[in-house]
Design a protein around this nucleic acid. Structure first.
Length: 508
RNA sequence: GGAGGGAUGGGUGAGGGGUUGAAACCGACGCUCUCGAAAAGCGUUAUGGGCGAAAGCCCAUCGUGAGUUCGAAUCUCACUCCCUCCGCCA
């Protein structure tokens, strides 16, 4: 929300700004309502003062009906006025380029080298499905379109990315980790700016009047709602992993591939509360914090300063981080490779703080609104997708970046084919072995029985243990929970606890 | 889900129709004293809004919303949240 006094004093600036943002808000209506509102208020207060004086003398001022009438008029005007006020977007910082479309965004820097391939790179959906780690079909069965399900090493990779990001931000960047509710009240949604304007984008739990968060920004920023912070505690820095829920209304048919635009996705969010004078510098730092993740993962990316036309509703200044997706079709549709947004880092100036009533106490004892900032650090699903595409090998397997290996416990996502006691079961019967990454011997068990077809075993050395463990067919059988071979699923699960399945299941 | 109790300023907590926007205590801040600190003493200390160049004046706010009344923190109704006990439960 903008400062009402500023609006009153700068009607032309407001109009110009709204025009820049192609806003169709009824500005004249706003000024009219404001004038009416103040007229009613002044009159009402005059009558109230009159009444109070009479009451002090234990007399009847008998202007009760007039007061009631004015109160009613005010009650009519006030919500209309508030509603428009809450729908006015934030003012862009002067450093934001004025533009009319995303074409006017400014690329600030590009980091990392786009990988070159001796083969045609695949997109993450092709890769993930072929490796058996991305299962969109089942997700659709469970929940409909725009949902995804990960299996085995794919799920482990998602989990590893989350933990990796949280660790970097807490250990290297000094953020405090929080876990917050996914369901919040309408008031919380209004505080960060999702309501009243973006109702359509939200999942609502009608029965309980709660909304699913579209980003952890909502719950985390609301932590300090109606609080006065101590200046010495600023900046306050939080990092939060959450699932995010977006209806993606009006985006039918757009970005339908894989993990790019789903109703539910994981995100690690960075949120900061700071003094106004540090706001812009803090935005640079926060953006750098998000970049660090991509840098460590060695995924090529660029930083884009959004122009006035492309900025979010509540933002005063936004940098987007975009990752290189070598396997996706280029935007002109002629070749391969395109940039994809993976993070959006913004300062909201005092726009959210005003709605949320978050202030801080300055050295001179005066209270002032804080500035709020946030950014994705990062969108996990899209990082997952970028990782597969950028680290794919000629045989369709995935090499895990060094920085992430301690978190995954595996170095590759291999393509595996199953063999039984009689030899390879055939190319069509692609099976995926999902390993418990924390139990190394199990990996070896599978390797003995799987035909890799030269695929993706780089960096692993199963030979050491396999002879010893695999002499006994029974061990293999005992340790496998389920291996279904064939066109149906071709999916195997290694289980840390033996004694679950008889060896015969293997032959089905 | 059932039964009770509660919600008052930065905190604890009085007040149960009329200078109570609100006692007292704690905290915080300022001053006195001190080389400095502590202690002690004195003082200041809610928020939002309207009018005004300013000093200031006025209005609203005791969980939220409505009602009774000349007048409500105080009475009535509804709602929300918190606490205690019982039941259920990851």
């Amino acid at each position: 929300m903008l400062d009402v006094k500023w609006i009153r004093d700068h009607p032309d600036d407001l109009r110009r700004m709204l025009a820049n943002r192609k806003s169709k808000l009824p500005v004249d209506e706003l000024f009219k309502l404001d004038a009416e509102r103040r007229k009613f208020l002044a009159e009402l207060e005059r009558l109230q003062a009159e009444r109070n004086k009479a009451a002090a003398q234990k007399a009847d001022a008998s202007n009760k009906t007039q007061i009631k009438a004015l109160e009613a008029q005010l009650a009519e005007v006030e919500p209309k006025y508030q509603d428009i006020l809450l729908r006015i977007n934030n003012l862009p910082d002067p450093s934001v380029p004025v533009g009319s479309s995303e074409a006017d965004n400014k690329v600030i820097r590009e980091v990392g080298k786009k990988p070159a391939y001796a083969f045609t790179p695949k997109n993450h959906q092709e890769l993930g499905e072929a490796l058996g780690v991305l299962d969109l079909k089942t997700a659709t069965k469970l929940s409909g379109a725009r949902f995804a399900m990960l299996r085995g090493q794919g799920a482990a990779l998602e989990r590893a990315l989350i933990t990796f990001m949280l660790d970097v931000h807490t250990q290297e960047h000094g953020y405090s980790e929080v876990m917050t509710p996914y369901l919040v009240t309408p008031q919380s949604m209004q505080g960060t700016g999702q309501l009243p304007r973006f109702e359509e984008e939200l999942f609502r739990v009608e029965r309980d009047s709660l909304y699913l968060i579209p980003t952890a920004e909502v719950s985390v920023t609301n932590i300090h709602r109606d609080e006065v912070l101590e200046e010495k505690d600023l900046p306050k820095k939080y990092v939060c992993h959450s699932a995010c829920f977006r209806r993606e209304a009006g985006s039918y048919g757009r970005d339908t591939m894989g993990l790019i635009r789903n109703h539910q996705f994981n995100k690690v969010e960075l949120v900061q509360f700071t003094q106004p004078e540090n706001s812009l510098e803090t935005l640079e730092l926060l953006t750098a914090n998000a970049e660090k993740i991509l840098y460590k993962l060695k995924i090529p990316y660029r930083v884009v300063l959004l122009c006035t036309a492309d900025m979010g509703f509540a933002s005063a200044k936004t940098y987007d981080l975009e990752v290189w997706m070598p396997g996706e079709a280029s935007e002109d549709g002629k070749g391969k490779g395109r940039w994809r947004e993976i993070s959006s880092c913004s300062t909201f100036a005092d726009f959210q703080a005003r709605r949320l009533n978050i202030k801080y106490k300055k050295a001179d004892g005066k209270k002032e609104f804080v500035h709020t900032l946030n950014g994705s650090g990062l969108a996990v699903g899209r990082a997952w997708a970028a990782l597969l595409e950028n680290f794919q090998q000629a045989d369709g397997t995935i090499q895990i970046p060094d920085a992430l290996q301690p978190y995954t416990g595996f170095k590759t996502i291999p393509a595996l084919r199953l063999v039984d006691a009689n030899g390879p079961v055939g190319d069509r019967d692609i099976a995926l072995a999902v390993f418990d990454p924390h139990v190394n011997p199990i990996r070896s068990l599978f390797l003995r029985h799987l035909d890799f077809g030269g695929a993706g075993l780089r960096g692993t050395d199963p030979a050491r243990e396999e002879g010893r463990l695999f002499d006994d067919q029974r061990v293999f059988g005992d340790i496998c929970k389920e291996v279904v071979v064939g066109e149906r699923i071709a999916f195997g699960v290694a289980h840390a606890h033996p004694d679950r399945c008889p060896a015969s299941r293997l032959k089905s």
